[in-house]
Design a protein around this nucleic acid. Sequence first.
DNA 1: CTAGGGTTAG
Length: 598
Amino acid sequence: MIRTKPLQPAFKSKPNFITHSFLLHHLSFSQASLHSNSFPNRSKYEKVNNLDDAFNLFDEMTQRQPLPSVFKFNQLLTAVTKMKHFSSSLYLFKQMCVNRLPIDACSMSIAIKCCCRLHRTNDGFAVLGSCFRRAIVPNVFIYSTLLDGLVIEDRIVEAERLFKKIIKHKLCEPDVVTFSTMIKGLCKFGNNDIAIGLLRLMDERGCKPCVVAYNTIIDSLCKDKMIDDAFKLFKEMVFDKHILPTVITYNSLICGLCKLGRWDEASKMLKEMEDVRISPDLVTFNILIDAYSKEGMVDEAEAVVKIMVERGECPDLVTYNSLIDGYCLRGEMTKARSLFDSLTSRGLNPNVITYSSLLNGYCKSLKIEEAMLVFHEITRKRLKPDVVTYNNMIQGLLRAGRCGAARKLFDEMRAQGQIPNQCTYGIILDGLCNNQQVEEAVSLFHLAGDSKLSSNIVVYNILIDGASKCGKIDIARALFHDLTIKGLQPNVRTYTVMIGALCGEGLLDEAKHLFLKMDKSGCLPDNVTYRVLLQGCLKNQKYNDVEMLLQDMDGRGYSLDATTLSLLIDHVATGSVDRSMLKLIGRLVPKELMDTPS
DNA sequence: CTAGGGTTAG
């Protein structure tokens, strides 16, 4: 399976004051990075920095007598390709072909790269065919580029086939780039172990793994939240293989740590990279800004922006998109809007991500009309709403109770060629349930006929929760039964939602039974499970298990949230829960709740 | 001499 973002975020801890003040302090006082943007030895063929110049130079070159060398043409193609004008580069290449201008393997590999980056890898293979017709022997550059094209298009089976063919038929000698590309493909499909195996294999074949090969796997492990494995590989790279990490290595690790809420370690890595004289770059700062924004700590995020500017880095669209999203998450739509409006004066054009963030912010703030305006603005700016945009808008409409409009947009999205993903269905099912339409939700779920959807435990969690919220405990039970029949494994959330549903109906014995069952089936109840069951006990005046639950929580290092705590205190006050439990309760109160007087 | 691989945003 290709890696996708989870439908539900992982539990994270907030950065404490010490960590982030250290982090900011540390960054602002370390030495500024050096910049060198001068390229004194570039010829005019690689110096072109806009398309017009490139085309003019090309025309002039084609008329020269004698013709410039293939080397000069390749330099020009490279320059255009570096500007990411892949179509133009391909156009020039085609002109070279039809006009019998000089072409070699290098020109071919540039053309193939352009095809691949345009998601036209098949055309890349057509260029490979033309190599044979022109008696140009395809080399390792050409095959590695084609391999990358297949990986870019998620054609992993074909990528593996090509890779094996290269080795078996000795099409070329695979080098460190060929291996790294295959490793990237494996990682993209979650095969980290096989990727590590390939890392070992290349070493055995006498092709020494380099920092890129390691980075690829380290980053993939970080994205899969296997950060400890990532560090294992990092240490192996540095200490056993004596390969120096780069800023990209650190960026991946810091990003992974931030996303897991491991702020103190992220801060430690920042310090470490400065120690080894690697300056944080634009991406490093963007990672920190995004992490702070997602924690709702926009002030700290803005502080990082200030520091990066002081250090000579120019905030880009990624920077501002993170900030805008941060303000949206806090519901500070005025700030989000003014930041959005300031983009053009900063020379930045909002993209579909910017618009979707803003739209989502308005939806979450229940300003559905504003959200619709933003939605229409997207097409007016000749951008295309994508799946995420539609998902956000549909969610907003459902929240506003406008089921009909949501339905219409769902149809429109498919008409526009945007394929609904699992997230879309999750949003719609949840929305229908919240609009008292569980039956519709369940039938849509069965109607969707998507095998991945019907085996998605998160979707079951949504439906069970929704059924319970609508007071349809029978439907909730049936769904829970249905998933076990299918051989699906309920997760903590499934159990918790079901236990909550049973508690809500006063079915405490059944809830307790399920609670014991989950533990037995190896699914450990989490913090939330305990809180839900505890609330169920209290609300239904079943006090027998309260002390045992509290003791369990203490033993597991769990804590109480504000709601459960105040409910408990109420019951102690009325005498239904014994005062002797106060000491135990006190131990379960997290520091944050102690500090904030409410 | 020119060509291929690794990091950040909804």
